[in-house]
Amino acid sequence: MSGAAGLAWGVAGGLGAGSAIALAALFGVWWERKVSARIQMRFGPQQAGPFGLLQTLADTVKLVLKEDILPSRADPGPFLRAPLVVFVPIAVSLLAVPLSAGWAPLDTSVGALFFLAVPSVSVLGVLVGGWASGNTYATIGGLRGAAQMVSYEVPRTLSVLSMVVLAGSMRPVGMMAAWRWWWLPLTAVAFVVYIVSSIAEMNRGPFDIPEAESELVAGYFADYSGIRWAIFMMSEYGAILAASLFGAAVFLGGSHGVPGVAGFAILLTEAIAIVTLVMWVKWTFPRFRSDQLMALAWKVLTPMALVQLAVVGLVAAWL
């Protein structure tokens, strides 16, 4: 690819991923409010538009119009840039996910590693955003968030590694093509580890101790308002979208060999099922304590992923 074409591709890919996350946040917030309402025997949003579908659109307008507050004790440079440091890596990682049989926006031989590596940059945004707020609650939230994100990267990477070993490739398109139905029972443990550690990576309930509203107000983004707060929130929904699409593609076989739009529809259905599972978990389990959360990562999930990797290694030797 020549330089100019590469640049144009990059701009288009970035805009595409950003819009996809914005759309996912619009739909995701509405879906989450409906799912949580059903769990709590309520109706959820139902006034704006059919089934309350336009509610999040109205909320978006409100958020964009709100004042962008800079706290007096904040360090302006890092404070104003931190939301983008969280958002951009998540948007970029989305590009490596295969969207249909044989096609991914960014199709590279190290796609699985790319998908896991790039979002780890957003840890810096969480730390810096919390620190630059000049506020104890936000700083503690940032520290907790970073500790959690760095720890859960280990079992998450190991769980994906099982699939890499089975497929014999780190290229997500190839992993999706190599998928066989009997991998599902074989790698069930890896899938569970992947889902749990992905939820923890997103700092979502029951792993939302970094932003626990009852003790830390809202953690690392306590002092953010308006559009910058919205970018943090969109990053969370972007991470849900990316983790669900990648999980569906790699662990559930994605589009099962169907190319084009039909294949994407199959993949999206599986991904929405995972999204719903993630929301169901959040609204069912109470929050973990900080030490319980660390113990789960290092004493339960990491050994589970290692055992799974050993089992897969034995099976892969016979393939």
Partner: peptide, 22 residues
């Protein structure tokens, strides 16, 4: 060298640098 680049981002930016800052 995409393999090296991805490893660099994963280990140094996401891991080592985050631990420094931490």
């Amino acid at each position: 060298m995409p393999l090296l680049a991805a490893s660099q981002v994963f280990l140094y930016v996401g891991g080592v640098l985050a631990l420094f800052l931490f």
